[in-house]
Design a protein around this nucleic acid. Structure first.
Length: 205
DNA sequence: AGTCATTCGGACATCTACCT
DNA sequence: AGGTAGATGTCCGAATGACT
């Protein structure tokens, strides 16, 4: 029986290219800006990730599937094969805000907490069960890194595993040059969620 | 001087798996 | 049966550093 080598693993460049081509990042940027800080409060942050992860599926051509499993948020289908991708969102992941000047590419991504827990973390690096690729999404850019490369840049921090990824070892999916100024849309997810919550509560007898 | 950026730890809610 | 470590994701706040 063949070992793992029998299953061909595509390159991070292939994954990045697929995300670049088959996901509408302008829509993502519009969504992220329109959502603003609505879900930034501590108790809503988990939901923010759910919104963004789902948006990958919605804004894709159908080849991206949201699964939300442990260590794997997305399944990406390329040439009839599916690949496991973990997604992290951080506002200023790759580019500084810029303010009055232009956004500037960082030498390395802002530190990402890949896993953390109360008490003491046992992992020294990402576990074998972790997705094969990590998609790091920011407001002004996104990039892909494969697991073997990612492992080179992880450090154990008390109760967490942190990744400090140099910008020149990743493959970019989009950059500030790939998107136009965001179209702000009037959405109020907090209100809709609150209403959904009240409706649900009202069903209880 | 005043803006912009970085850094660090802690905060949030709640589930499952495992332990005694 | 009851307790808790470990897992999930993101940002805030304050203090400090760097730049124009």
């Amino acid at each position: 029986m063949m070992k793992q080598k029998g299953t061909k693993m595509v390159s991070q460049e292939t994954i990045a290219h697929h995300f670049a081509k088959n996901v509408d990042w302008q829509k993502f940027v519009n969504l992220a800006h329109s959502l603003g800080d609505q879900l930034n409060d501590a108790q809503w942050r988990f939901f923010k990730a759910i919104v963004f992860e789902n948006s990958m599926e919605s804004f894709s051509d159908g080849s991206v599937r949201y699964v939300g499993e442990e260590g794997c948020d997305l399944m990406v289908k390329i040439k009839n094969k599916e690949y496991k991708v973990e997604m992290k969102y951080m506002e200023g992941a790759w580019y500084t805000a810029g303010g009055k000047s232009k956004p500037r590419l960082r030498n390395q991504c802002k530190g990402i907490i890949l896993m953390n827990s109360k008490g003491t973390n046992t992992h020294a690096t990402v576990p074998d069960t972790y997705a094969d690729f990590l998609l790091v999404v920011g407001l002004r850019g996104a990039a892909v890194i494969d697991k073997p490369t990612l492992k080179q840049y992880t450090t154990k921090h008390g109760d967490s595993i942190q990744a400090d990824i140099p910008s020149d070892v990743v493959d970019f999916v989009f950059t500030p040059n790939h998107v136009k100024a965001p179209t702000l849309q009037k959405i109020n997810l907090r209100q809709e969620l609150n209403e959904a919550v009240r409706r649900t509560i009202a069903q209880i007898q």
